[in-house]
Amino acid sequence: MKIVVTVKLVPDPNAEKRIDPATKRLVRTGVETVLNPYDEYALEAALQLKERIGGDTTVTVFSMAPESLKETLRKALAMGADDAVLLSDAGLEGSDVWGTSYAMAHALKKVGFDLLLVGGLSDDGSTGATPGAIAEYLQMPLVTNARKAEIKDGALHIERETDTGYQLVKAPLPSVMTTALTFGEPRYASLKGIMGAKKKTIAAMSLGDLGLELPVGSAGAKTELLAFAPPAARGKGIVVEAADGATGAKAIFDFLKEKKLV
C-alpha cells in the first residue's frame, strides 16, 4: 500500500512574527522554515499505519514549495518517510488555495497513492480549505479530523472529531484523510533516521509535468492579497502579585466591577 502525506513548509510558528510596515511582508530574517506542525501529525499517522499494515507499505511525503526549501523536507525523511516529491515552479508563485489545490491534485494523481493524508490546517495561510479542494479535484472521498484509523477488508474505518463530538465512519480506498492532533504526537527523528535521510530521494516535479489546462500562480489566482498589516495594539495590561487567595480575588473583582462586568 502506498501512503502519501502532504507537508507544507511554513515559517516557524513559535518565532515572533513581525510585519515590515514598509514592505508589508513578513520579516523572514531569523525566522526558520519548518514542516507545518499539523502535517507532522499527519506524517505520524502515516508512519503508524505503515507499521500496523506492514508488508510493502511505503510513505511518500509531498510538498509544493520553492526549490530552495528542499532540504527542509529531510526532517520528514528522518522521521521515517521513505521518499519525497517536491513540486516547484516559478509559475506557482502567488498561488491561492484554489491554484494550490488544483496543481497539487494533478501532481498527486501522477504520484499515485492508495491513501492520501493531508494536514488539517497550515500555520500561515490557515484556511483549512486545501484538503477539501484537493479531494474534490481528485474526485475522491474526504474524511477529516481522524483520531483513529484502521484498514479492514479494503475499507477505512475512522473515528473522527466533529464540532459537537465524534463520529465513526467507513470510507473506501483510495480516499483523502486529514488527522486530528489526537491521532498521536509526532515522533522525534532518531540519529539513525537522520543519517538514513541523507540517502533518501527527493524527486522534483514542475508545472511542465502536470499539463494543467488552467493558469495557476498569481495569474490564475481567484483571490488577491491587498493588505498585510500588524494588528491594532492592545493596551498594556495590569499585573498584580497576589499574596493570598483573598487579595487575588479582590483584585479581579474590583477590576471587573470597574469594567462593569459584574
Binding site: 489545490s101 484556511t127 480549505a129 479542494a133 474526504l142 477529516t144
Partner: peptide, 10 residues
C-alpha cells in the same frame, strides 16, 4: 472548512 474546501474546487 470541509464544505468550503470542496466548494472551491466544485
Amino acid at each position: 472548512k470541509d464544505v468550503a474546501g470542496r466548494l472551491v474546487a466544485r
